[in-house]
C-alpha cells in the first residue's frame, strides 16, 4: 500500500512555479533576455562614449544596416532549425540585385523585373534543395558550390562592372530610400517579415514540422512527416528571402555591384547562432536571431564611431560568435548532466 502511495506521489507533475520571482528567473534564463540586456548595456556605454551614437541619424543608419540583412537572417535561421545551412546567401542576394537591375536596363518594368528576380532566387533554392534531398548531398557542400557559381553568374551578367540604375523610377526607389513619417520603409518591411515569421515559427504546424525534422530527421519520418519536403521547402524559403533582400538593396542603392554581399553568409550564420540557433538543427528562434544581427550591427557601428580599425572589427565580431558558441556548449553540457 505504502509503496503504491509513493509511486503516485512521485508521479505528480512538478507544478510550474508562477510566483513573480520564479517568472523573473525563467525570463532571465532566456537567451533573448540576455541579448537584450547586452544590447542595452552597449547602448548605455556608447551613449557616454560617443556623442554621435544616440542620434537619430546614427540610429537610422544602424537600423537600415541590419534591416535588409535581417530578412536574410530570418531565412537562414529557419534553414538552420531544419538542420541545413546555406553559404550561398551573399551570392544569391547579389544575383537578385544584378538580375533585376539588368532586366530593368533591358527595358523591363522594375516591378516585373523584381518579381522575376525573386522567382529566379526561389528556383536557385529549388536547385539546391534538389541536390540535397533528391541526390543526397550535404547542404554545406551544395551551397558552397552555388555560392561560387552565382558569384560567377553575377560577374557574367554585369561583365564585372556595377550596374548603374539611377534611372529607376522614384516610386520604386521609395522602397529602399523612402520613409513613412520618420520610419524608413526598409525597416517597416523588415519588421513585418520578422514579426510574421517569428509568430509562425513559434505557433504554426508547418514550422513545427521544421523543428521535428531538424531535431531528429528519422524520428520525424517515423512520425509521418515528409522530411525531405520540409528540408526542400526550407531551402527554397531561404533563397526566396535572399531574393527579397536583393531587390530591396537594389532599390536602396540604385545600383547593382557584382561584388556585393561578400562574407554576408558568415555574418548571417553568426547572427542566427548568437541568437540561439543550433548548427545541429532543431532549435532557434527568429526573435533571437534578429537580436543577434542587431547586436552585431550595434557593435560594428560602435567600433566605427570609436575609430577602431576595421581589421579589429572583424576580430571582435568573430570573438563575439566564439563566446556565444562556448556559452551554448556549457549550457548544453549542463543540460546533459541534469
Amino acid at each position: 500500500m505504502s509503496n503504491s502511495d509513493t509511486i503516485t506521489e512521485s508521479n505528480q507533475e512538478i507544478r510550474q512555479d508562477n510566483s513573480l520571482p520564479a517568472k523573473l528567473r525563467r525570463l532571465m534564463a532566456m537567451r533573448e533576455t540576455g541579448l537584450i540586456l547586452i544590447i542595452l548595456a552597449l547602448f548605455v556605454v556608447m551613449t557616454f562614449a560617443s556623442p554621435y551614437f544616440l542620434t537619430w541619424t546614427n540610429m537610422r543608419a544602424m537600423g537600415m544596416a541590419f534591416a535588409v540583412e535581417g530578412i536574410v537572417v530570418v531565412g537562414m535561421c529557419i534553414l538552420l532549425i531544419a538542420g541545413g545551412i546555406d553559404l550561398s546567401v551573399g551570392s544569391v542576394v547579389t544575383f537578385a540585385m544584378v538580375l533585376a537591375g539588368w532586366l530593368f536596363l533591358q527595358g523591363v518594368d522594375p516591378w516585373t523585373a523584381s518579381v522575376i528576380a525573386i522567382i529566379a532566387c526561389a528556383a536557385v533554392g529549388m536547385a539546391m534543395g534538389f541536390c540535397v534531398t533528391k541526390i543526397g548531398l550535404h547542404h554545406f557542400i551544395v551551397s558552397l558550390a552555388f555560392m561560387v557559381i552565382f558569384r560567377g553568374v553575377c560577374l557574367l551578367i554585369t561583365q564585372g562592372r556595377p550596374l548603374g540604375l539611377y534611372t529607376l523610377p522614384p516610386e520604386f526607389k521609395f522602397i529602399g530610400q523612402g520613409s513613412v513619417g520618420v520610419i524608413p520603409i526598409v525597416i517597416v518591411i523588415f519588421v513585418v517579415i520578422v514579426v510574421a515569421f517569428d509568430f509562425l515559427v513559434r505557433r504554426s504546424t508547418v514550422f513545427r514540422k521544421v523543428f521535428y525534422t531538424g531535431s531528429n530527421e528519422k524520428a520525424a519520418a517515423y512520425s509521418g512527416i515528409r522530411t525531405k519536403k520540409v528540408i526542400f521547402l526550407s531551402t527554397v524559403l531561404c533563397s526566396t528571402l535572399c531574393g527579397v533582400a536583393g531587390v530591396i538593396y537594389m532599390a536602396r542603392f540604385a545600383s547593382a555591384p557584382p561584388y556585393f554581399g561578400l562574407g554576408m553568409e558568415l555574418n548571417v550564420i553568426a547572427a542566427a547562432v548568437i541568437g540561439g540557433a543550433s548548427l545541429q538543427g532543431g532549435s532557434g528562434t527568429i526573435f533571437g536571431a534578429i537580436l543577434g544581427v542587431v547586436l552585431l550591427s550595434v557593435v560594428t557601428s560602435s567600433l566605427a564611431l570609436l575609430d577602431v580599425s576595421t581589421y579589429w572589427q572583424d576580430i571582435i565580431r568573430g570573438s563575439i560568435l566564439l563566446v556565444a558558441v562556448i556559452f551554448d556548449h556549457y549550457v548544453n553540457k549542463k543540460k546533459a548532466l541534469a
Binding site: R208, F211, Y212, S215, N216, K218, A219, A220, A221, Y222, G282, S283
Partner: peptide, 13 residues
C-alpha cells in the same frame, strides 16, 4: 533515441 523521440524537444511536442 535514434528515431523514436526528439530528445531536445519538449514532452508535449
Amino acid at each position: 533515441k535514434g528515431d523514436g523521440v526528439f530528445l531536445d524537444l519538449s514532452i508535449a511536442s
